[in-house]
Design a protein around this nucleic acid. Structure first.
Length: 479
DNA sequence: TTTTGAGTTGTTCGA
DNA sequence: GTCGAACAACTCAAA
């Protein structure tokens, strides 16, 4: 009787799971194990909602495994120690796991590989970061050529996706700990965990919503996005399943708009892999700007302004609505993420890393690669960055992408009586209008904490200075 | 090696 | 209200 270990990390699914398939084909029995890693759980980059979603996902996975005659083992501790002990205990051969790219995952897996045979297999992405490279062997650092190379690689079709196993045999007599409960019944904000839920969402979105995605995804007052991010984060749906669905939708689209929608959503799959590739090839982006020029930026980092941003009390309705949506649900609309990121970095001149950390501490889908890529893009410090002079105007963004103020009123109820015409700039209401709207600026709702025009000019100057300083430094070095 | 074309998501200003 | 230009060069990718 041979035994293999399936080490589950962010692949909480039975279908199209290459690590599980490899374990099953290599041995008679498989131990599915999740390791509660104190280094991750106590890292300061953890969100209650994300942890709750993980634990709920583990419960569903355990139930799914039990239907196949198996079960999930949960252990706690340093992964290398836990896995070495488990291997000894069940007399197992290799450990199979889905390769991950974050700097911590790399260190952790290297430590495990030193004490046990660890076989890392594909699955986090459709195309591994080592497979999408330039002719020279260097990684791409601009999205468009990356996406061209990505698309040129062979794609699996639906028939090639792996089915869930029909049965799974787990050795008897091994004990683990119970899947933790979240304190005080964490509300998962409309994201029930599990593979079945993820597959349903994917099928529903790929069957209808995706065709209007290009336009509707911009609208914060609509439900135009797939809301699959937490499921992709923990692999309740595989990257391949999502990409295959996108390609099928593209093929099935009958209108120009429909094709554009499917194409745009496919692009989002590729953006995800682009940022995974960037984090893999340039792990230092976790700690510093990708672009050297902006490592010298002089951030203001005013703690009071940061606090107002976190709490959704900036006086800019679209920013406050978004930040409150994040606190309450653990999720934020993608356009809203760009707006608040632009506001934090360009209006408040606060270090993007502060915002990155806050997002990781609250997002149910918080992913190191995508979050870092998004923040550095917004801050203009990243690989394929927005030009530094591209500064979102929170009023215009609100008027354009929440035209009726529905999103603002949902999350900032003190503004619910404000006329639509003024909902994104309530401070220009006359005192009389404020009384009538039941919203006095300065007491019911804050006045803007910064003046956008002034802040914008200050930021343009700061970025220009950072670039200038760099030029001077390198001139000096070259001499 | 050199050259050339191109680059997620925007805003402001002036005509 | 609408339109085009300016914003700022810079670096990447590929021929």
């Amino acid at each position: 009787m041979s035994t293999a270990i399936w080490w589950i990390r962010r692949d909480l699914r039975l279908a199209d799971n290459q690590a599980l398939a490899a374990a099953l084909s290599s041995a008679d029995e498989v131990v599915p194990v999740f390791v509660l890693d104190p280094a991750l759980l106590g890292s300061g980059y953890v969100a209650d909602k994300r942890l709750g979603f993980l634990f709920a996902g583990l419960r569903v996975l355990d139930a799914d495994l039990r239907r196949l005659g198996g079960r999930l083992l949960v252990r706690r501790g340093n992964p290398a120690a836990v896995l070495a002990a488990l291997r000894h205990e069940v007399d197992a051969g290799p450990i199979y796991a889905e390769a991950d790219v974050s700097p911590y995952a790399q260190r952790r897996d290297a430590a495990v590989a030193r004490v046990a045979p660890l076989s890392l297999v594909e699955g986090l992405t459709v195309h591994s970061p080592d497979a999408v490279l330039r002719e020279s062997g260097d990684p791409y650092v601009v999205y468009t050529p990356y996406s061209r190379a990505w698309r040129a690689l062979p794609m699996p079709d639906r028939a090639e996706l792996l089915s869930a196993p029909g049965a799974i045999s787990v050795p008897q007599g091994i004990s683990g700990e119970a899947i933790p409960e979240m304190p005080s019944q964490t509300d998962l904000g409309g994201f029930p965990a599990g593979e079945a839920e993820a597959q349903q969402r994917l099928a529903r979105f790929a069957g209808s919503g995706v065709y209007a995605y290009r336009e509707d995804r911009e609208r914060m007052d609509l439900d135009g996005t797939s809301r699959l991010s937490p499921y992709l984060r923990l692999g309740m749906v595989s990257a391949r399943q999502a990409a295959v669905a996108a390609l099928e939708a593209l093929g099935a689209a009958e209108t120009h708009a429909g094709r554009a929608g499917a194409q745009t959503w496919l692009d989002e799959r590729i953006w995800r892999e682009f940022y995974i590739s960037i984090l893999y090839h340039f792990p230092e982006v976790r700690h510093q700007s990708f672009r050297e020029a902006y490592r010298e930026l002089h951030w203001e980092n005013d703690p009071a302004l940061f606090c107002a941003w976190q709490e959704g009390k900036t006086g800019y309705p679209i920013v406050d609505a978004a930040m409150r949506q994040l606190s309450v649900t653990g999720w934020m609309h993608n356009r809203a993420r760009m707006i608040v990121a632009s506001f934090l970095t360009k209006d408040l001149l606060i270090d993007w890393r502060w915002g990155e950390r806050h997002f990781m501490q609250h997002l149910i889908d918080g992913d190191p690669a995508a979050n870092n890529g998004g923040w550095q893009w917004s801050a203009g410090t990243g690989t394929d960055a927005a030009p530094y002079f591209r500064i979102f105007n929170p009023v215009l963004q609100g008027e354009k992408y929440d035209p009726d103020g529905v999103y603002v009123r949902r999350w900032v109820p003190e503004l619910s009586g404000v006329a639509t015409r003024l909902i994104h700039k309530p401070w220009i209401m006359t005192p009389e209008a404020q009384r009538q709207a039941g919203c006095v600026i300065g007491s019911d709702y804050p006045a803007p904490i910064v003046d956008h025009t002034i802040a914008r000019n200050r930021t343009l100057a700061a970025y220009k200075r950072a670039k200038g300083r760099r030029a001077t430094d390198s001139d000096f070095r070259d001499r």
